[in-house]
């Protein structure tokens, strides 16, 4: 049915998402100047930005995880910082530290690189748990507490973190409490053969990296992001769909294949991201399709397989798929 027919029936969406769709289209256009393929990855990044969520990007080295995050940050005209996580990184290297000023004989807080709008943490799982723990407060509450004083982050505040799979040399598994703070864990795959050829074509005689980065122009401001997020929050979610989200998450807690199920924070992440996806698709309400599509990215890093299932070679995605298949879609 054409949208006009729905309008004639009085069933058209109540919210006008044309601004949002235009912004999303422009960002994608900018990213395509440099990124070949990875459509699903980019879509999920955009959903996370609109749903006010942090993103963990996992993939083997060399598949444009960092580059995509950097380019995305450039499309939004806000502050951007990059932190390379290393095994000897200390919490104060991330959050900031008090510095003594001899002139005034006082300590002054010197903000760390976390104080920005978009923070790209590269290879996050190369730092030990002590440094990871320093991100707990800032990722959840968008503030840090230092020497009893709270420092709020600017809005928007988004953490985009990349990591290599934990099987890789020199990597650590992130603490569950930290993983739970990421809205999505996106698994970036190798490009297809056709995409690989296209990548080679684009990069043949390519300009210098900085020159390419300069080609990317910002299409969103902080105010615009805030306005679009407000629109997303207005997306209607029927009680039946809310129950469906809750059922999917609760079932991870009673599943014999899982040692650890997902938290209520996962339900909220699934709800908020589904609203953003619906808005991107010009719908003023969430449908079960949105929930099913986002469930793997929301849940895969929040659940732990039982040792037996792990030994059998199962993955969290296998269990999530099974749960989705066994749960009746509300209709």
């Amino acid at each position: 049915m054409e949208p006009l027919e729905e309008a004639a029936l009085g069933l058209a969406p109540q919210t006008d998402f044309s601004d949002l769709q235009q912004a999303v289209g422009q960002i994608k256009e900018e990213l395509r100047k440099r990124i070949i393929g990875q459509e699903a990855f980019i879509d999920l990044l955009l959903v996370a930005i609109l749903a006010d969520g942090h993103v963990l990007i996992e993939g083997v080295p060399g598949i444009a995880k960092t580059l995509t995050a950097k380019l995305l940050a450039r499309t939004i005209d806000v502050g951007f910082n990059r932190i390379q996580f290393t095994p000897d990184l200390m919490p104060s290297d991330v959050l900031g530290t008090s510095v003594f000023h001899p002139g005034t004989a006082t300590f002054q807080f010197k903000q760390g690189p976390i104080f920005s709008n978009i923070v790209l943490i590269d290879e996050i799982n190369r730092a030990p748990a002590k440094t990871q723990s320093s991100l707990f407060e800032v990722m959840e509450e968008q503030q840090i507490t230092h020497d009893g004083t709270q420092y709020a982050m600017a809005d928007p505040f988004i953490v985009l973190a990349t990591q290599n799979p934990i099987e890789q040399e020199g990597t650590y598994r992130l603490p569950e409490a930290q993983l739970d703070r990421f809205m999505f864990k996106i698994l970036v795959q190798y490009p297809s053969l056709a995409e690989e050829v296209a990548i080679l074509g684009v990069h043949h005689n390519r300009p210098a990296l900085q020159q390419t980065l300069d080609e990317i122009r910002p299409v969103l401001t902080a105010e615009k992001v805030s306005m679009l997020r407000k629109q997303v929050r207005e997306v209607h979610v029927d009680t039946k769909v809310l129950e469906y989200i809750a059922q999917l998450v609760v079932q991870t807690r009673a599943n014999k294949s899982l040692y650890l199920g997902a938290s209520p924070r996962a339900s909220l992440a699934l709800l908020n991201s589904a609203k953003a996806l619906a808005a991107i698709r010009n719908r003023s309400f969430v449908i079960p399709e949105d929930v099913q599509e986002l469930a793997p990215s929301v849940l895969r890093h929040r659940i732990l397989l039982s040792p037996e299932r792990e030994m059998e070679g199962a993955t969290p995605d296998d269990v999530i798929k099974q749960i989705i298949q066994k749960t009746e879609v509300p209709r």
Partner: peptide, 12 residues
């Protein structure tokens, strides 16, 4: 689409 507008969209 019609069903979804009515059933999930809360259209009167």
């Amino acid at each position: 689409q019609l069903f979804e507008y009515v059933w999930y969209g809360g259209s009167a």
